[in-house]
Nucleic acid binder design. Structure first.
Lengths: 153, 153
DNA sequence: CACTAACACTTAGCACGCTAACTGATAGGG
DNA sequence: CCCTATCAGTTAGCGTGCTAAGTGTTAGTG
């Protein structure tokens, strides 16, 4: 027996399919556009934006499993697996089996990976500068996006 | 001679690289999460989300060139080219050379493509319902994303 | 009018990002 | 203690999404 909740009818106006009113469209274009800002900043280090996010996660806590990374970054392990191999090939991390549980992989920063962090500290400032938006505006956007993430969990 | 603008220094706090404070991370996860809501709704029609956006653009104006579509959707023509072929294979549109300018392609909805619109009208309502967020909240998010798009133009 | 620059689109190569199927390791029940 | 279900990670297949290079068409200049 499901609870009968009185749900107010949704009104999306006369053209619900108008492209420039779709949140999904604005989201995907904004995501691609912001990632494009990072591209020239990451390219000198041989990094893509998804790889950069992996490093952010590892800079917060270093030996961690693929599953842990996947949950943190909201990715499928299958997406991370090849990415981690590329990051290993770049010399930023190592992949070895956990001694106590051979199923798990211990993904760990190398010295080069840890050293990169100092360089990367500049990146957020450059991105915010390039965006030219007020910090308060960005914080409000972040809060709104966080609401979406909670709603889609 | 560049204008010397007094720029207030940006302060991103003590950990500028904290993952859960990055707008770029929230953006990419939110984008993927919202697209995931569309997936089961589009799958019955054999569509992916990017393909759905192409149809939204064509429902607004139908014979249009690849370049026109690319600018509207903020894509490279090289991204659209294979997508349009797949949409043609699905029977939703036709691709033919423009008679007056053989360089351009005239991308046009088929009868099936036009008919799909009536079905698609339901999709935005289902997505909003699934998100469970207030319309005002979504409009504010859309406005914030539009600001980002203006900033990255 | 010929020649070249610009244009519209396509193809190739690479890295995601997803689902589904697979491999090997561990844990839990009979 | 074995046997099976579960788990962690990998691989394959497909569709983006980007850059760079290629093809054919048009326009503009000498």
């Amino acid at each position: 027996m499901t609870q009968e909740t009185a749900r107010p009818p949704i009104d999306l106006g006369k053209d619900p399919l108008a492209l420039d009113r779709q949140v999904c469209f604005a989201l995907s274009v904004a995501s691609r556009s912001v990632i494009a800002i990072y591209r020239p900043l990451l390219e000198p280090h041989g990094l893509t934006h998804p790889q950069y996010l992996v490093l952010l996660a590892l800079w917060q806590s270093s030996p961690r499993s693929v599953r842990d990374l996947a949950e943190t970054l909201r990715h499928e392990p299958a997406t991370l697996s090849p990415m981690l191999k590329r990051l290993e090939a770049l010399g930023y991390l190592t992949r070895r089996r956990d001694a106590t549980d051979e199923r798990q992989l211990a993904v760990e920063l190398t010295e080069a990976g840890r050293a990169l962090r100092a360089e990367a500290e500049k990146i957020p400032y450059r991105v915010v500068e390039r965006l030219g938006m007020e910090l308060g505006e960005l914080e409000a956007l972040h809060a709104a996006l966080t609401r979406v993430l909670e709603a889609t969990r």
